[in-house]
């Protein structure tokens, strides 16, 4: 089982799904064996605002250098009562191994639906966030190989984003990028959403230098940030591209937007 983790692209080698080095037996011969994971590439991104949350993901699905599909969504509405999920109030994004992502989505969706029917009210993001963690940790020793982000509006109507690692460790954050281009997008977000490394000009020298004040961003600005983040990621990462799917959660409901990305 340890071989599974040595194949974590973040730990060694380039960030490509074909980085599946065959396990080597003690004799030095290459041993062919079944490896139950693959990486389908792509990236996701979530930003919460004062009264909204945006979760976005590209729609490319890859296997190695090949593009499986140009439209394979990674962002899903969760826990609605119809097949169109029109009345959902939660959004889940999954990136990594797509089959696990699909399985995780289906499972969470069923659980949130059951919660709604049993309690007569929709599940809160906070409750769903804890539940998702439990689901992921339940497969601690055969994990869902996905990075999940859950979004919605909290009890006060403020935007909420919860991000996860594959085995269920989670926290609520202002924003989070995940997947293949996470390392490209996250620093951009730190700078543009949380104003990291932005100082008030002339406010002082060295430690006296004052950080720019953190203010929540308006929705249209965040939308533009998301677009810029993905346009940039597409330029620099081969597994990201084709289309950008954005789900915007406000108290009015969930709005879905689709924008084309470069297909090269």
């Amino acid at each position: 089982m340890s071989a599974m983790f040595s194949q974590n692209p973040l730990m060694n080698g380039p960030n490509y799904s074909f980085n599946q080095a065959p396990a080597t037996a003690s004799g030095g011969n290459t041993e062919h064996s079944f490896y139950p994971y693959t990486d389908n590439g792509g990236s996701t991104l979530a930003i919460s605002g004062n009264d909204f949350t945006i979760i976005a993901g590209d729609t490319r699905s890859t296997s190695g250098y090949s593009i499986n599909s140009r439209y394979s969504p990674k962002v899903f509405k969760i826990g609605g009562t119809t097949s169109s999920q029109d009345d959902a109030n939660l959004v889940l994004s999954v990136v990594g191994f797509a089959a696990d992502g699909e399985a995780l989505k289906e499972r969470l969706d069923a659980i949130v639906k059951m919660y709604r029917y049993q309690h007569g009210k929709p599940m809160s993001v906070k409750a769903c966030a804890q539940r998702l963690s439990t689901i992921l940790y339940g497969k601690r020793f055969f994990p869902y190989y996905v990075t999940a982000i859950l979004g919605g509006l909290d009890e006060e109507g403020k935007g909420a984003v919860y991000s996860y690692d594959p085995v269920g460790s989670y926290e609520r954050e202002q924003c989070r990028a995940a997947g293949a281009a996470a390392s490209l997008i996250m620093p951009f977000l730190d700078n543009q959403v949380n104003f990291k490394n932005q100082y008030i000009p002339g406010s002082g020298e060295g430690h006296a230098l004052q950080e720019r004040e953190n203010i929540p961003l308006p929705k249209d600005e965040v939308e533009d940030l998301v677009k810029d983040a993905f346009d940039s990621a597409v330029e620099r990462h081969i597994e990201v591209g084709d289309g950008l799917q954005m789900l915007i959660i406000t108290k009015a409901g969930i709005e879905e937007k689709y924008l084309p990305l470069k297909k090269d």
Partner: peptide, 22 residues
């Protein structure tokens, strides 16, 4: 739509498996 031994699925106007994908 396609499905494989890992349970990965995707759909596209055209699809090909194996060498066909390349």
């Amino acid at each position: 739509a396609a499905a494989d031994l890992l349970g990965t699925t995707f759909s596209s106007p055209s699809l090909a498996t194996g060498y066909g994908a390349h």
